[in-house]
């Protein structure tokens, strides 16, 4: 018991000293479990997140947009891959993680349960959804678990074009025909609140936060990051000459931040429970890809075994 305590103390001391924890280092079981949950949720989000944007690949209205969108979605596959790899260093296999996703046990970011209805959604998703994701990810580059932090550094490098391509897309629409402008505004209206919810519940309702902050697998609180996001977007939207669907949004001189309206968490909770517009479709698509890929993976393994034998 006393050695356990001292192990935990030493572990916390290392974290307090900003040292990285590496896979073979001793770590509390709860730290390992929390990390697996957080990293795999993050990985699932990247992979499921390919679907709403993938929905528009074949309809991208110019060749330049088409390659940008493809490259962007491919990056998300890479992010999923880096993150699954980081989780695997904690002693769980990718297949086990997939199974948790496909059985509905594991969560992923609820934002991807909303449909992409028009081309402008590709802009709004890149600008708002990737924008919100980047806020989180930049913070995680300094997280205490080495493999997770390194994956995040790589992810952030690649993310840098995602938000820009989304914004540029909207900017083009904003300078276009009245129909294009309306399309852009409509997309912003639909994606704004779900993006705000990506930062998770308010700090007062966030049960895991305190421990995660102590372990430095979360470096800023949900509300801090959300505020940063609002401050960034509220300025950028001026360039688009469009509006955010929040009548309470205004600059607060005293706070040095934008004030914004209360978030309606009822819808968020319903989507989280599985009642979003696309929850079923998204999981079904991932399940289909995985199940239909089974014979391919088996064949590759069988062939590899044959090759090995013949050497």
């Amino acid at each position: 018991m006393s050695t356990q305590v001292s192990l935990e103390e030493r572990f916390q001391a290392r974290i307090d000293a900003e040292q990285k924890i590496e896979p073979k280092d001793w770590m509390p079981e709860a730290y390992r479990k929390t990390l697996i949950r957080q990293i795999s949720q993050h990985a699932h989000s990247e992979v499921v997140g390919m679907l709403p944007e993938g929905n528009w690949i074949t309809r991208a209205p110019s060749l330049r947009r088409k390659v940008a969108l493809l490259a962007k979605i491919q990056d998300e596959a890479g992010h999923g891959l880096y993150l699954y790899s980081a989780a695997e260093t904690l002693g769980i296999s990718r297949e086990e993680l997939y199974n948790e996703l496909l059985s509905g046990k594991a969560k992923y970011s609820s934002i991807f349960n909303y449909p992409t209805l028009t081309w402008a959604d590709m802009g709004a998703v890149g600008w708002l959804v990737d924008g919100a994701a980047i806020m989180n990810q930049v913070a995680l580059c300094k997280c205490s678990y080495g493999p997770y932090a390194r994956a995040m550094v790589r992810v952030c490098k690649e993310e840098s074009f995602h938000q820009r391509q989304g914004f540029e897309l909207l900017l083009t629409l904003s300078k276009g025909t009245p129909e294009q402008r309306a399309m852009a505004q409509d997309a912003i209206n639909r994606w704004w609140w779900p993006s705000m919810m990506m930062f998770g519940p308010n700090d007062s309702d966030s049960p895991h936060s305190a421990q995660s902050m102590r372990w430095k697998i979360k470096r800023y609180s949900n509300d801090t990051l959300r505020q940063k996001f609002v401050d960034m977007i509220a300025e950028q939207i001026k360039v688009l000459n469009m509006t955010l669907p929040d009548p309470d949004l205004r600059w607060n001189e005293e706070r040095g931040h934008y004030d914004f309206g209360a978030i309606d968490w009822t819808e968020f909770n319903e989507v989280l429970k599985g009642n979003g517009p696309c929850n079923r479709e998204r999981l079904a698509a991932r399940r289909k890809a995985w199940e239909e890929g089974a014979w391919v993976r088996e064949a590759a393994m069988a062939h590899a075994a044959k090759r090995q034998q013949s050497v």
């Binding site: 890479g78 891959l81 880096y82 695997e88 994956a151 993976r297 062939h303 590899a304 090759r307």
Partner: peptide
């Protein structure tokens, strides 16, 4: 980083496709 592949050949190609884009 890491990746999954059935054999060394495939691992090389996956590495090319994933990590040298």
């Amino acid at each position: 980083g890491s990746l999954h592949a059935a054999d060394a050949q495939m691992a090389l190609e996956h590495a090319r496709d994933v990590y040298t884009r």
